[in-house]
Structures are given as structure tokens and as C-alpha cells.
């Protein structure tokens, strides 16, 4: 009973808007460090090296925000938090932003006291099967044994998909990805399901990756992006526009290599992005040329993608033709204009 009461109290406290919400930027500036929450080490998005440094797609968003505020991408302290406690850790102000492949859903956006800023990666759930099984479509998996992580939306999506297509399946569940992968490789299940980025990463570490294929179907929408506490719109704007800035930079051809030359460009779009014209930084509480620092020290969106998860990395998720291509190239990575 006591526990129920306490849990209720905690949930009530979670829903209440925290009183310290308004001044995140000022707090961060005073502290001199951005507290950025990532997940347990995951290749491509927030990978931990043995020297203690973090890298990856989501880590670079934190570095980008740090560069925008301090002109230094490394004034970040990473908090590695399990998915079970990620939202409370953000809601009670242990971290300033959460950048850890979190799916944007209505419930999370509206009921947890959190704000999703924007999407930096479009993922979706898929299936991995052995190539010699002859299966070429998820619709052929009727009656199959499927390996799936417990306690994730993945498990629910799987059930939804099979029910919608009037098929049956036997789940093999575990909470440890490595155990599931061992089961799958040992022939314990016909298919392994997870977000496609995760499947690609895992397959790259199989003894013989070519013997396994990703089925074409995508059975769920997983828009992933950074999250901030609700109630501090100025802070949410800053995080959001750093990402928009990175996307705009790619679209305008500004990269970490040419940003110095571009700084004197006469193209009004580039001039506004890099702060030689107008003063977008002022509205965000940072200096006008903040995007120069972000791009020079971290990179534009395309550079981040190719560096951490692109075709030439061990993860190897090609970008062309996927949702994560720029809108000008058939994808849906699109940012409002910098003006």
C-alpha cells in the first residue's frame, strides 16, 4: 500500500510542471557543463570507447548544443541511463537534454512532462532472416518463431503486425540483445526483429553477415529525436534549431571543411545561417555566429550520418533512398528555413 501511495505521489509530481523549468540555458551556462543523457552504449548512436569517450549520432547532437552555447563541443557530461529511468531522470532535472534514440509518441510527448524537439533519425522495425531460408517477405513468416526484445515497443509492434495480417507466431523473448542474437544464430528462431538500424548494426557483427537478409517490410514508425523538459520553450528552441541548423547546412552545402570560406558567402541563406546577416542567435540566447562553431566543430547532418552510421561505417546503413535522405533527394529530412 505504501508503495502504491508513493508511486502515485511520484507520478503526480512528474505531471506537475517543475518550478525550475524556465532557466535551463542560464543554469547550463553557469555550470559550464551541459548534462546530456544518452543510453547504455549502443554503436552508431552513443558508442563508448575504452578511453571513456562517447561518440555517435546522438552524442554529436549534445556536442552541437555545447558548441552553440560555449563555442566548445566537449563541455558535455554524458549520463548513461537505462531506458527504464530515462524520462524521470530528465524530468527531475538531472540532465538538460535526452539524446538517445527515443521514439516520439503521443503519450510520451503529452503525459510525461517532456517535449520532443524534432526528429534526427527515422527508424522502423524490420525483420532479419537467414538468406538460405528462402523467405523474402515478412508476410511469409506466418507460424514462425520470432526473437524479440521484451519490454519494448518492438514486442507490441510485432504482435500488432501479425494480428493485422491474420498470422500467428511464437515469440522467443529476452531482455538482452546479445542473448537473442545468440539464439537467432543458433537456429533458435526463424527471424529476429528490432529497429532496422539495430538489425543492421548487429548483422555487421555476425560471423558471416552475408548469410542474413533484412526483409523489405517496415512494420512500425520510429521517429527518433532529442527530448527536453516541458516548460522551457527557449531551451527547446535552442536544441531544435541546432539540429535544424545542421540540416540546413547540409542542404546549403556548408560542411565542417568549407565553413570558413562559406562564412563570407554572399548567398543570403548561408549568410543568415552563419550569422553574418540577421541575428538568429539572439533569439536563441547564443551568439549570432553559433552555427559556425557547430558546423566547424561537429559537422552538418550529412557528415554526422556518414561518420557514424553511413555505408562506410561498421554499422553500414546506406542513406540513399531511405527516409533519412534530405528532402531534396527523396527523403524526409527537412528543416524550416533559417530566417
Amino acid at each position: 500500500m505504501k508503495r502504491i501511495l508513493l508511486t502515485g505521489a511520484a507520478l503526480a509530481a512528474l505531471n506537475a510542471t517543475p518550478v525550475f523549468a524556465q532557466e535551463t540555458l542560464a543554469t547550463v551556462e553557469e555550470r559550464g557543463i551541459l548534462n546530456c543523457q544518452v543510453g547504455l552504449p549502443t554503436p552508431g548512436f552513443y558508442a563508448l570507447a575504452e578511453d571513456g569517450t562517447w561518440s555517435g549520432m546522438d552524442v554529436d547532437l549534445c556536442r552541437g548544443v555545447s558548441a552553440a552555447i560555449f563555442g566548445d563541443p566537449d563541455k558535455v557530461e554524458y549520463q548513461s541511463v537505462t531506458s527504464a529511468v530515462r524520462f524521470t531522470a530528465l524530468a527531475n532535472a538531472e540532465s538538460d537534454m535526452l539524446s538517445r534514440t527515443t521514439t516520439w509518441t503521443a503519450v510520451r510527448d503529452t503525459q510525461l512532462g517532456l517535449d520532443f524537439t524534432t526528429v534526427n533519425f527515422y527508424d522502423g522495425q524490420g525483420f532479419l532472416v537467414p538468406a538460405d531460408s528462402g523467405i523474402t517477405s515478412a508476410l511469409e513468416l506466418d507460424g514462425g518463431v520470432i526473437c524479440v526484445l521484451t519490454g519494448t515497443t518492438t514486442e507490441l509492434n510485432l504482435a500488432d503486425y501479425f494480428r493485422a495480417n491474420e498470422m500467428s507466431f511464437t515469440p522467443v523473448t529476452n531482455e538482452n540483445v546479445n542473448v537473442l542474437v545468440e539464439t537467432y544464430l543458433g537456429g533458435g528462431c526463424d527471424a529476429y526483429t528490432n529497429d532496422k538500424s539495430g538489425l543492421a548494426a548487429r548483422r555487421s557483427a555476425f560471423p558471416s553477415p552475408d548469410e542474413h537478409i533484412l526483409l523489405p517490410e517496415t512494420v512500425s514508425k520510429e521517429p527518433l529525436g532529442p527530448v527536453v523538459r516541458q516548460g522551457d520553450d527557449a531551451w527547446a528552441n535552442l536544441v531544435r534549431w541546432v539540429i535544424f541548423g545542421m540540416i540546413n547546412a547540409e542542404e546549403l552545402g556548408v560542411s565542417s571543411e568549407n565553413v570558413d570560406e562559406m562564412a563570407t558567402s554572399t548567398d543570403p541563406n548561408i549568410a543568415r545561417l552563419l550569422g553574418s546577416e540577421g541575428n538568429i542567435g539572439e533569439g536563441l540566447g547564443v551568439k549570432p555566429t553559433f552555427m559556425i562553431d557547430v558546423i566547424k566543430m561537429v559537422g552538418n547532418y550529412g557528415e554526422l550520418y556518414e561518420k557514424h552510421i553511413g555505408a562506410n561505417t561498421p554499422i553500414g546503413i546506406p542513406r540513399e533512398g531511405t527516409l533519412n535522405a534530405l528532402w531534396t533527394e527523396g527523403g524526409i529530412i527537412y528543416a524550416p528555413p533559417f530566417r
Binding site: 547504455l40 546479445n178 561505417t313 561498421p314
Partner: peptide, 17 residues
């Protein structure tokens, strides 16, 4: 325990658990 798990998530040693 968590440190041991981190090894298998290092890009170079992915899946080593």
C-alpha cells in the same frame, strides 16, 4: 557488470559478450 556489457557494444567488439 555494466562495464562488461559495454564491451559488447563497442563498435570494434560488437557482440562480444
Amino acid at each position: 557488470m555494466n562495464m562488461a556489457r559495454a564491451i559488447g557494444e563497442d563498435t570494434n567488439w560488437l557482440g562480444l559478450f
